[in-house]
Write a protein that binds this DNA or RNA. Sequence first.
DNA 1: CCGTCTATTGCACCAAAGGGCCAACAAAGG
DNA 2: CCTTTGTTGGCCCTTTGGTGCAATAGACGG
Lengths: 231, 231
Amino acid sequence: MVAPALRRPITADEQRRAERCARGLVIVIDDDAEILAALHALIELEGYACETYASALAYLRALQDGRGRFPGPRCLLCDVKLPELDGLELQRRLATLDDTPVLLMSGASGAPEAVSAFRAGALDFLIKPLDDETLFAAVGRALAASAARQREQARRRDLAARLATLTEREREVARRVARGERNQDIAAALGIALRTVKRHRQQAMHKLGAATLVDLVHLLDAAQGPGTQTL
Amino acid sequence: MVAPALRRPITADEQRRAERCARGLVIVIDDDAEILAALHALIELEGYACETYASALAYLRALQDGRGRFPGPRCLLCDVKLPELDGLELQRRLATLDDTPVLLMSGASGAPEAVSAFRAGALDFLIKPLDDETLFAAVGRALAASAARQREQARRRDLAARLATLTEREREVARRVARGERNQDIAAALGIALRTVKRHRQQAMHKLGAATLVDLVHLLDAAQGPGTQTL
DNA sequence: CCGTCTATTGCACCAAAGGGCCAACAAAGG
DNA sequence: CCTTTGTTGGCCCTTTGGTGCAATAGACGG
């Protein structure tokens, strides 16, 4: 579907990069340089890509620049107690910008922090000192969630793109068809000829790559179902 | 759809019960009798039905008896630290039996308990002393979740019941129809005559109350989509 | 102003779906 | 033994959907 044409051979460098992307990126934010270094080493050793930031602001700045965004699943592993910007606060801000899953961690903090973290949507809350097994279990879940979200987004984008190639009339007809209306009724409702409805219907199904009515129904359901009230 | 016939007038008593059911039931489990009494009063004052248990085992026993299960949304408000059976352990056991949303609470416990609670699927974790506002916010969310689950279950049960009235052949044909296969192809695939496929198809749509193909598709998608691999 | 493109429509034809009427056959139950 | 139910099938007719061909009208760029 969305396969970009491969024009040149893949270099070994790109090969390695691709492997890392597939595994995923872990973005670590902690104000303790020692921990940062240790986590960086540990995470790369496990085969994930890893970026580290000493503060939430540093990460946000990097996000602003936005150059060369990492392709593939990603997650955030962020300390709760940070200077300037709190881990919880960072999470709240990210929730509106980004849908990267967030793992929060903290040393010997109380229940309230953990509760706040989960209420704010953190995927997990890790207590320092970090246990390798627990850490990577959480990272695995987070990256899996990220991958799922990205697949879902890609699917929706692809669908939206195909929907965008339809003309207004075609979309309208397709929508009604997918709601179970008959060609005749659609023609009457839109005040156009039966033949015209048939044409739009065919055209729409062709553009959307729907071989059967059932496919059309599924496509349109998927397009407008989860949130997006387009169409 | 599933409206039971009303045979006799509704008594005032039933009326009050119905009102409570609509608001929801909060099941409180705590080993501190004082807290139990206070919560009971507070919750009933807020207009919810309330059952209290002094231990997790007592609640499980009540579940076993199972007589007169409360109709309507329900949630569990359970202390983490309990004699005999731990709140977290109770939650784990309930997860397999019941889908009642669980709110855990605890006095001055550490982050690990809170984290375990959320990981085990608790909807929220309340820290004693309980703040009225926080409590009822959580209860409201839990009961809303419960109501949503019950609606979903009812919908699926209704659908399953209707599907059960289909004969094997009718189900098979309906499934293929909903996958976009044409009558002819279905006939060929099943090695039967076209006329027979049409009959089964008609019969199935009639039994399922599907006026159009689109309705059929939606019904079967809903039936098998979320988990249940029936059909 | 002209050629082109798109949306629209009519006409004709074929394929597929919907359905009425009738009937055979087997298994399950009374 | 008879009835009911599930499954199967044939014949025939109507409605709906799917397409090809041709034509008209408005929009747009040159």
